[in-house]
Design a protein around this nucleic acid. Structure first.
Lengths: 190, 190, 190, 190
DNA sequence: GATGAATGAGTGTTCATTCAT
DNA sequence: CATGAATGAACACTCATTCAT
């Protein structure tokens, strides 16, 4: 299938995101998504192979947009700490401004659907970050431990803090963002 | 007349957990759960009001068991750091030994179903932990910041690291667990 | 099956009547009837063979009670017109005082369940009335036409008038009952 | 795209009518109706909101057709008695030629489903008849009594006589129809 | 390209009935 | 006698998907 009308494509994705957030994968039927997007159920099958493809495509589309927002304007030559702080801030901004998309990815990533995603593609989006981590380790600025372990303190706390389902008392003000970054940095720095 | 059977209750919960992990909430139908549990679909409705109740009850049952395992044998008079280290270890042990139950809670917590949970009940299970955090802050051992922020570094990294969907290269050996705890402690300690 | 506890038998019948009137045959399940009667579903099967038997027995029980009320204290030697007037009045009184039972029979008589009723037994209850009609014909007081035709004017209008679903503006006062009887009599008298 | 098919609508209604007559509302499931109509169960939900809507729509459709047949070609300027006699005859003809539809309405009218019908719409169909009754009263041809009371003798006996469940010995020949009308007229005339 | 009608398979749930106690 | 647990079959209804237009 090839995209003909980008407006319709977005409308369908947006309808998917909001509906899945509201009622979950189970109840978000193609018919309901079509109705919310203002198209016929049959039209969805012009843009997507099937329901799974619709969900997976929506997820990867968001992930790509998300990675671009996180890494926008990053100067990879800057000091490691500055790079992370900028990523940290930009991630918070993106997540805050696109709560619905973010919430969708969280639900998706914890469901069996995620197994259908081509993880190498997602990894490619975030490759520059991995390079910076490696530089930090080489320069003995960051602890020399497993990558997953560093990510668990460097990035996942953002997802936790931004997840309104999990954290109800934390508000992402400028100040709170910087405080939370300092905790992350304390965790991983040597 | 026959008597309600606790082994049947467990069989239904266990079937729910494994099936939801394999195919997700959407595809885990009552009929399939019943078949796996070795009972009639109608029997499920003797033990639970409806499908939602089945899922929510399964979740809260696990959460209770989980909190008991985390806090088992904790000496609340011990130094704050020791308490956290013990909780950290016990959580890892529980999560590692009950991957399926843990995975279920992760998927559940990121779905709209979680809104149906009585969160005050869950909070009660974990109340002792909150008390220890407060003591740490009062004794100027732990940073005086928002509770959600501390949790995001103190506990959620465990969930991330133990989540095989997210972290494929991290293995929870004795050593790795202690290393990861040291990152967490660096993050929150003053 | 044999009746052991008449109180329970009545309770089940009464529950059946009220529930069927409220929600119809389709929705009136054995479980709901049992709950309303304050017994276990299994108990119903001690008093009745199955659901159909429950409904049919309830119907014939009412019909018998109804015929007794209609014909109570009738002097079969009295003039034909007087007999009919008394029957007419007594029928109205019964129907008015037992609206629920009456409504049940109306719904039942218009459903396929009625085919399961032994109609000769019902006819036997009303045999004395048929004898009076015959006497009226022989005495050239009543028109010599088909029995069903006479019944259609002599008795069914009562059912119609007493049926609150059909007649909303007619109220069965003493006066209205006598007026309506005069119409019936005008219809059938020679 | 395909277009909604009126023959399908009729096929579903007809299947509903015959099946409900045979086995009642309770047993006439959507699946059975669909099978008899030669469509998929899902198709029924394209033409009707739900099962209740299917039954109610079928009822009102019949009632409309019935009222049109009863009042066809009536000269409202003719003498009151002639008008009623023509209505009486036409009703008998309709009921005799559409026993199944008629039987359905009788069962329906005595069930709780009837409460879902918009009775004002039904009344509108029969409004001309009410006007004639009023004229008869004003001209002192018909007894000045409650409308429901007149109907109970003027129209309901037809339903009774035509109801094969109730009247097994009455056959609606030309002669019998006129005889029965004379009884009705005797009942209501001044 | 886009649609709504159409569908067989499936959904969550309740059914009438039986069984062990 | 009386019960509530237990069940396979059926319920009303919705699903993802296809098809004719």
């Amino acid at each position: 299938m090839r995209v003909k009308d980008d407006t319709k494509f977005r409308a369908i994705c947006d309808a998917t995101i909001s509906l899945v957030n509201e009622i979950g994968f189970a109840a978000a039927s193609v018919a309901k998504i079509a109705k919310r997007a203002g198209v016929s159920p049959a039209t969805i099958y012009i843009y997507f192979d099937n329901k799974d493809d619709l969900l997976v495509s929506t997820y990867t589309t968001i992930k790509k947009e998300m990675s671009e927002a996180m890494l926008a304007g990053i100067d990879l030559q800057a000091p490691v700490r500055d790079i992370f702080q900028q990523i940290w801030r930009q991630t918070f901004v993106y997540v805050t401004q696109h709560r619905d998309k973010f919430q969708f990815t969280e639900q998706f990533a914890n469901s069996p659907y995620v197994d259908q995603v081509d993880s190498t593609e997602i990894d490619r989006y975030f490759a520059p970050v991995f390079a910076v981590i490696q530089r930090g380790i080489d320069q003995k600025i960051i602890k020399n431990v497993n990558f997953d372990l560093l990510s668990a303190f460097m990035f996942f706390p953002i997802l936790t803090l931004a997840n309104s389902r999990l954290c109800r008392s934390f508000t992402p003000t400028e100040e709170n963002i910087d405080i939370s970054f300092s905790l992350a940095w304390d965790a991983i720095k040597l």
